[in-house]
């Protein structure tokens, strides 16, 4: 076979595999328009006249299960936490890289250590601490995410700060910039690519996180997308498959839109985050 033919054969095979790869998402989409009784009976058939139900499943998911509020809180928690993490940890990382002492070295090691600790180790005590300090609101969760997510962010920022020539900052400070001004008008613009990488990694984590908000949030008042979906399946006795399908679709759509619009940065961010090992 010539090289060209081989390439074409690979394209055909990969096209088929790709279709198979995304088919689960289409099957869910298809089922979200069926009557709930038919979803488990014939999940792979297109909705027919008998099984089609229109947007009713979506209406149910939104009205009965408070899905929109959950989306809203998820957005608040994710955006708030990521912005706070980016600002605070980049300042922290710059300080501990530029000021060399035993304390800063210790802080760095502590951050690296926190990256490898599994959440199960701290989950029970963390929920006690958040209850005691009344951090069981979306705003409190921002602080928890800053604390628990600091490890990876500090690590990545430190790696980048080390590669910035210190002369640039010295020049700014000799010209009379305070450390704050040096950070915000010199260091911050240089670090823009790292902000994007860290921002994307933290967004992917916090948006999808289930256990941390489940254990720390006051669930009578607040919920997130993952929590609502998990709750639809459990505890209520009869499971409304229709509403679950609709909720799954509504949960996936923002992710796909986000992915397709910042794909370039996401893939770069993942590749950059991987170098941490």
């Amino acid at each position: 076979m010539t090289k060209r033919k081989k390439g074409l054969a690979a394209t055909v095979i990969f096209t088929l595999v790709s279709i198979l790869y995304v088919s689960p998402l289409f099957i869910v989409l298809m089922n979200s328009f069926k009557k709930k009784a038919f979803i488990n009976l014939e999940p792979f058939k297109l909705p027919s006249e008998k099984t089609f139900i229109g947007p009713e499943n979506y209406v149910n998911a939104v009205e009965k299960y408070g899905f929109l509020q959950a989306v809203l809180w998820t957005v608040v928690i994710t955006v708030g936490s990521v912005l706070v993490i980016l600002l605070c940890t980049s300042m922290f990382a710059w300080y501990i890289t530029r000021v060399k002492s035993t304390t800063t070295k210790f802080l760095y090691l502590l951050c690296v250590f926190s990256m490898v600790v599994p959440f199960q180790m701290v989950m029970f005590t963390l929920s006690l601490v958040t209850d005691r300090l009344r951090l069981n609101t979306p705003w409190g969760l921002v602080i928890i995410y800053l604390g628990f997510g600091a490890g990876l962010a500090v690590f990545m920022f430190c790696g980048f700060v080390k590669s910035i020539p210190i002369e640039i900052e010295e020049a700014a400070m000799i010209d009379g910039c305070s450390p704050l001004r040096t950070f915000f008008s010199v260091v911050l613009p240089i670090m823009k690519p790292t902000y994007i990488s860290v921002g994307i990694l933290e967004t992917m984590w916090i948006w999808n996180d289930f256990l941390l908000p489940y254990l720390t949030l006051d669930l009578n008042k607040y919920s997130t997308i993952s929590i609502v979906i998990q709750r639809m399946q459990g505890s209520y006795g009869r499971v409304d498959m229709g509403a679950i399908m609709a909720a799954l679709v509504l949960a996936i759509i923002p992710i796909v839109v986000f992915y397709l619009s910042c794909q370039k940065y996401i893939i770069k961010g993942v590749a950059a985050g991987a170098v941490k090992g």
Binding site: C88, T89, M91, F92, W94, Y95, I96, R98, V99, L107, L110, C111, S114, V117, M121, V122, T125, L126, L128, V129, L133, L135, I143, I144, Y145, L146, G147, F148, A150, G151, V154, M173, S178, P179, L180, F183
Partner: peptide, 25 residues
């Protein structure tokens, strides 16, 4: 001169780190 600014640079993350990680751990 950077050292004098440690409350601004270090404290927010450090406090959150204590609440969110060190104490529970």
């Amino acid at each position: 001169s950077i050292k004098r600014y440690f409350p601004v640079f270090l404290l927010p993350t450090f406090l959150a780190f204590i609440i969110g990680f060190i104490v529970p751990f």
